[in-house]
Amino acid sequence: MSASEWPLWEVFVRSRRGLSHTHAGSLHAPDAEMALRNARDLYTRRSEGVSIWVVPSSAITASSPDEKDPFFEPAADKPYRHPTFYEIPDGVKHL
């Protein structure tokens, strides 16, 4: 394996306890352990995190390239899934 083939890793950082990990960016590293160390130096220089995940970019399966594609359409015509869809008489409380 040459240095040029260092794989790409996606970095997820939990900024504080109680919040979920959020994508922070990516970096190259030869292995998972180095990816973690590099991620610490690159994405948490100002205490931005209490926990880091690194995932090989190649391990991520994504939905289709077009982010506006029909894959998400089934949800578009179902406004009744939202509470605001329903009309409630004025004055009715706790609903």
Partner: peptide, 16 residues
Amino acid sequence: GAWVREAAAAYAAKHT
């Protein structure tokens, strides 16, 4: 820095 990159890559390969 080439030797550092090569050593890290070799270590990773061995580990894998």
